[in-house]
């Protein structure tokens, strides 16, 4: 089913990625290229995390989450809370945001997952708006007007602070992808697929469907929260409309769909591709047009290439699933 490159262990993947990064950082430092690369790269990597997190529910199990922006923003605001309380360091913000969103995911799942799948989808949409309303009315984190987060200008040994955040997000992306890949190859992951294909049959074949679904919402929520944790530091000014921006929800769906939703590689490819295009497009053409392109590409892919780029590649390489 997979070509050899896909069989690389997460360890080697991490190693390779870190090596590439190290080389890149050195080169950029040497040539003094401006920090825009890191600024843009951070966003792309953040989408790798979000798309991967979404795919655990959506791709593996077939449960659509429209509320990615809600989870992301709650992660970001969890950090703001810690910051306002005692100026917590990022190292504390990230796990805290993750845990808050994991609990949120668990609660969401518990309330809606016993219903038909589509109700889960609608409920996630509803949840994002309820949360946004709560944040707008919560003065402690800035309410509708937003809040400033002061960050240091530099962080040794990275030079610029954005460079540091880029590195943090890279680690988070590697972590998220490793978790997704590990799930995918585990018994739990095979249970997810059974649920996606036929939930009743899965249950009758001995799969504890409710428990697996709750695992998925919890893990997925955790990863989305983690992706949002450094957001306030990255933008240094956070407001509800930017943290809850629908673009996060759209991208989190579009990227796995474009890359291919059935493997961990799909969201990575989708995020790197679509994320990079968006970063380039925001600079070169208008940002609205860039959003329009995302929407059109999403619709185009779900109609024309339901298996995404990974599916196209597989077909193209003539890979059949007979080597298992």
């Amino acid at each position: 089913m997979k070509w050899p490159a896909l069989k690389l262990s997460p360890f080697w993947l991490c190693a390779a990625a870190i090596a590439v990064l190290g080389i890149a950082v050195t080169i950029f430092d040497l040539f003094n290229i401006n920090t825009f690369i890191f600024f843009a790269g951070y966003v792309v990597l953040q989408y790798v995390v979000l798309a991967t997190a979404w795919n655990i529910m959506g791709g593996y199990m077939g449960y659509v989450n429209f509320g990615t922006a809600g989870f992301f923003a709650v992660g970001a605001y969890a950090s703001v809370v810690l910051y306002n309380l005692f100026q917590a360091p990022l190292a504390l913000m990230i796990p805290f945001a993750g845990v808050v969103c994991a609990l949120l995911g668990l609660a969401m799942g518990y309330l809606t997952l016993r219903l038909r799948g589509v109700f889960f989808a609608i409920a996630t949409l509803a949840m994002a708006i309820v949360l946004e309303t709560l944040i707008i009315n919560w003065e402690f984190v800035g309410g509708a007007t937003g809040a400033y987060i002061l960050r240091s200008r530099e962080q040794a040994p990275f030079g610029d602070y954005i460079e540091f955040l880029f590195f943090v997000m890279l680690l988070l992306a590697i972590f998220a992808v490793s978790v997704a890949r590990w799930l995918e190859l585990s018994r739990t992951g095979r249970g997810f697929i059974a649920i996606r294909d036929d939930e009743i049959a899965a249950e009758c074949a001995g799969v504890p469907t409710l428990r697996l679904k709750l695992i998925a919402t919890t893990v997925s929520g955790f990863l989305m929260g983690v992706a949002g944790a450094p957001f306030a530091l990255y933008v240094s000014f956070i407001e509800p409309s930017s943290a809850f921006n629908l673009i996060y929800a759209v991208n989190a769906i579009a990227m796995p769909m474009i890359g291919g939703a059935t493997t961990w590689l799909g969201p990575v490819i989708g995020a790197l591709l679509l994320g990079t295009v968006q970063q380039v497009a925001t600079v070169t053409i208008s940002s609205e047009l860039n959003l329009l392109i995302v929407g059109i590409v999403l619709v185009f892919f779900v109609i024309v290439a339901p298996e995404g780029i990974v599916g196209l590649l597989k077909k193209w390489l003539g890979g059949r699933r007979d080597d298992r």
């Binding site: 579009a254 769909m257 959003l291 929407g295 779900v302």
Partner: peptide, 18 residues
């Protein structure tokens, strides 16, 4: 279930952005 929903989500987004 999956792609149909994503389709309408995309349509919604396209109308809004347009």
């Amino acid at each position: 279930a999956l792609r149909g929903l994503a389709f309408f989500f995309g349509v919604m987004f396209i109308i809004e952005v347009a």
